[in-house]
């Protein structure tokens, strides 16, 4: 026997559930719109010329985004070079010394750094590197991006290494293996997947960063390998060309967007696979 009150409550329950489903999938609509727009507008500008040539002066058709591609790769290289060693060491430190006054402060600093808006990081990198070295440069861009990457790598490293049971470490130490060897041969290899994931996500994040690069890497219509000279980057290129009035440049910007989105999403996908395949399990 089901009276009216109950069936109304069940109806309400169902209504609620399906409105949740509706609202949730509504929230995914913008994602499809963005991907669709970027793919639709970007695909037509994709060609061999597009990735092997430099941009043309405003209003002239053709040209490519080689400077942006090389610049972005170099910036990723430099920021990785600066942030990976520091990030892993710090993550290691925090997982080895979990409690204590010093660890508390280090963790706090990492948290603060992680929450700092990227535009503020750009200001700091400008003050530290650009003013000191007397010019915008690839290096200053690398420093700015590494400040964004470090906390991400630290967090990933710390979280993974914490999952490794202390028995593993103790067994190694008990066998007479030195502390550093234990870390390098036992601890880090067991947590490698987590660390790699952190690095991949960090790279994906900085590949799309724009604001700090405006004050540091600055942009360059030519390809540049010199760390002391300005470079372009895909996001800077997109920003500059997107707000211009020239349709040829909009076309370049859509192409560059497609390129960037593909790279970033690919990195995210790979990191997912890494974390699923080589999950830290004990």
């Amino acid at each position: 026997m089901v009276d009216n009150g109950v069936s109304f409550r069940i109806f309400k329950d169902n209504l609620f559930k399906w409105s949740l489903v509706l609202v949730s999938f509504l929230a995914t609509v913008p994602l499809f719109l963005i991907l669709f727009y970027v793919a639709k507008n970007g695909i037509s500008s994709f060609s061999w010329t597009f990735i092997t040539h430099l941009p043309k002066p405003p209003g002239e058709a053709g040209g490519g985004i080689l400077n942006g591609i090389v610049g972005t790769l170099l910036l990723i290289g430099w920021s990785s070079l600066l942030s990976i060693p520091l990030g892993i060491t710090l993550g290691l430190y925090l997982s080895e010394f979990r409690e204590g006054f010093f660890s508390y402060w280090v963790r706090l600093c990492i948290d603060v750094l992680q929450g700092t808006p990227s535009v503020v990081i750009g200001i700091v990198a400008y003050a530290w590197i650009v003013i000191t070295m007397g010019g915008f440069s690839l290096f200053s861009g690398g420093v700015a991006l590494s400040l964004i990457m470090v906390p991400m790598i630290v967090k990933a490293t710390e979280e993974t290494l914490k999952l490794i049971p202390s028995a593993l470490k103790e067994a190694s130490l008990a066998l007479g293996v030195s502390y550093s060897k234990t870390i390098f041969k036992v601890i880090i290899p067991s947590g490698l997947s987590g660390i790699v994931t952190g690095i991949l996500l960090g790279v994906a994040r900085v590949a799309g960063e724009t604001a700090p690069l405006l004050f540091t890497a600055f942009g360059n219509p030519f390809v540049n390998w010199n760390p002391l000279k300005p470079v372009s980057a895909l996001p800077i290129l997109i920003f500059n060309y997107a707000s211009s009035p020239f349709p040829e440049w909009h076309q370049l910007a859509w192409g560059a967007s497609l390129f960037l989105v593909t790279i970033v999403l690919l990195l995210n996908a790979v990191s997912r696979v890494v974390i699923r395949k080589w999950k830290v399990q004990f």
Binding site: A27, T28, P30, L31, L33, I34, Y37, V38, A204, R205, A207, G208, E209, T210, P235, I238, F239, A242, S243, A253, W254, S257, L260, V261, V264, L265, L267, N268
Partner: peptide, 18 residues
């Protein structure tokens, strides 16, 4: 589907928005 948007660079949101 929910996590992917977090990875898309903000400059692309701006461009698309524009």
């Amino acid at each position: 589907l929910i996590e992917v948007p977090a990875g898309i660079p903000s400059v692309i949101y701006g461009f698309w928005g524009l």
